[in-house]
Design a binder for these strands. Structure first.
Lengths: 359, 359
DNA sequence: AAGAGCTACATTAACGTTAATGGTGACGAG
DNA sequence: CTCGTCACCATTAACGTTAATGTAGCTCTT
């Protein structure tokens, strides 16, 4: 099993008695090769088990045929779905995927930039840890095309493919209000990222439109400190602790807009332990429509995020930019709408008037 | 912003008036370069913003400094955690990560093998779709080191790093029986993969050891057909449908060992809709300890799987093999124990005797 | 029938790096 | 004073591929 030397064009060339270049042209399907010799060369290549060396090819062509992907956390279902879509779409377009995981950590991001530059990837898909920008600027200055995904970096002149969180939050909030909720809560991550800002904006827009008085609104930020080195923020734990207080204080006919479904899990548990019925006294709406959302009791109303579409569109946008290298096209901003999936957590069973416990 | 040509060793060389080789040796920290010139060269390299070209380097060195990772489904938390660990550990050892997602699809696996060979990755970490083997054999024959992760391919002479599912299932089943369960169910994927076989084996061993009669045992397989092109098996949906029948038939004091936590979600919902109380009349134990497990009501008892350890160990094993290329070391099999996390779903509140509905 | 134009290939160079081999000066030993 | 040694650097070759250029021999035209 001693690793056999890889078959090269030279091997085929000497085997068929032709030059390396002719073999290269024959296999590449280019002209100036007779069909007879082309067939013979292809047959010989198959027989020898020839596999082209991408690195050598990339070196001479000056394009890596690779896109770098920098993701914060593959355990977030949104990103894991996106990774699948990016890989699939990329492979269709002939691109391989170099993955770096930042774990919401700036040092890892620097490492990612270094890796991208060393490999000379044609482009990078980036979910940035905020708010540092300088290293991305360096990457772009080095000639690497770049597309931000999901999270924006306003300081950077760079394409963005993501979700219209503002509108999604707006609609989700309207839905909450429509269920007859009188007191509204917002439970969000306390990260300084564009997605949170957008959701908060949408939340506010809905409240303003409906004329909800400030005293009926309360905004809470879940401290997203790390519990351990390899722990990422937005685990249910922190939200759970915060929701325990909520469960004690929140009046009936309340609604909670939660920044992500993991936090909603914490809310579920805190309220259930406090003996308070979600969907009945308290409405909850989450973001992400994580796989478990439909299977909770009651089902969690959540905004479904088209991660696959975002991933595929991001690849398309990046590859388009790679295609017209250098020609500074204006900054593109592509956003997909979220889709509110209404379930039991936001369908109050009590109509309008107060109503002593039924069930 | 017209992509500036990349800075090469040649650029540095002409800039400092030395040869390319000297610059290379200076930056590589090799001898035969005076400290004075080395410092000058390094300074100039920094000034010009030199970044070594990994592809050129790999081409001449004959090693890609890359490990290929073939995963079935990043949305499975086990694999997403593993991806993080692999990427982190790999980067520490100087390896980049080329990711291919098979989506439990054989065609994608063939594509993955092709990609690995074209890039000439030094090694591959593979979670194989079963039971095809031939393409992996080809990859190994081409000199690519390979380590299987989580799932075994007995026909292949290849390292395996994974979980001791047999023992985990054995312990989980014993735990179920210890809670006073009289009727035992097994709810498993119907995929022909080693992990399922191992869990079934462990299940049987525990039953045999406790002398559980066959009529008290029932094994069910969840049909893991695809719902759509981009849908993967083991979503809660199929398990939910199957569990609806279970919820109607299962007698009190029953226990269900479920192959993964996603299926357990389906069971939760089916039983909750049928008005049956999990943890009270029916005990449930899952696998994976998914993030939601602790936050369900009741908390789901589940076997925690050390995905990070598996990922890191797999990288170590692979890199070790890459180090001693060719020397056919015997097949290694590294397995980590699962850790049963007991929660409300398997702690019957009723002691021993029958007891009319309380709560 | 002779140059023009084409087909089908060979030859040469290049991509950016590292390894192997060559060469030159200074310096110490005899 | 001369020869060998060593430190330091240059030169050459190589990795496997593609692009640009070169060159036979043939066909076609007039």
């Amino acid at each position: 099993m001693n690793s056999p030397r890889r078959v090269t064009l030279q091997d085929i060339a000497t085997s068929v008695g032709l030059s390396v270049n002719t073999v290269s042209r024959a296999l590449a399907g280019k002209s100036a090769v007779s069909e007879a010799t082309r067939a013979m060369i292809k047959a010989e290549a198959d027989r020898l088990g020839y596999v082209p060396n991408t690195m050598a090819r990339s070196l001479v062509l000056g394009q890596a045929m690779t896109i770098g992907v920098v993701i914060t956390n593959p355990s977030n279902p949104f990103y894991s779905r996106m990774i699948s879509a990016v890989e699939q779409r990329g492979s269709v377009l002939g691109y391989s995927m170099l993955l770096v995981v930042s774990e919401e950590n700036h040092t890892n991001e620097l490492r990612a930039v270094d890796s991208m530059r060393r490999w000379g990837v044609d482009g990078a898909l980036v979910v940035p840890v905020q708010p540092e920008v300088e290293h991305w600027r360096r990457l772009m200055a080095a000639g690497t095309e770049m597309v931000l995904v999901n999270r924006d970096l306003p300081e950077l002149d760079c394409d963005l493919v993501g979700i219209d969180y503002e509108r999604s939050a707006y609609e989700a909030t309207l839905h909450l209000l429509d269920t007859g909720v009188e007191q509204v809560y917002l439970l969000e991550e306390d990260l300084q990222i564009s997605t949170v800002r957008a959701r908060v904006d949408g939340f506010h827009r809905a409240l303003a439109e409906r004329g909800v008085p400030p005293e009926s609104v309360r905004e809470l930020r879940v401290p997203t400190r790390r519990r351990a080195a390899n722990t990422l923020p937005w685990e249910p734990a922190e939200a759970y602790e915060l929701a325990q207080h909520l469960a004690a204080d929140v009046p009936p006919r309340s609604g909670i807009l939660v920044g992500n479904d993991s936090f909603a899990l914490g809310v579920y548990r805190a309220f259930s332990e406090a003996g308070r019925v979600i969907g009945d006294e308290v409405a909850v709406v989450g973001f992400g429509d994580h796989p478990f959302a439909a299977y909770l009791a009651p089902g969690l109303t959540s905004v479904r995020l088209p991660a696959e579409q975002v991933g595929a569109a991001a690849v398309d946008q990046l590859v388009a930019r790679i295609g017209r290298r250098g020609s500074a096209a204006p900054r593109a901003r592509i956003s997909f709408p979220g889709d509110l999936v209404v379930r039991g957590s936001s369908t109050h069973r009590q109509p309008a008037a107060a109503d002593p416990g039924s069930s």
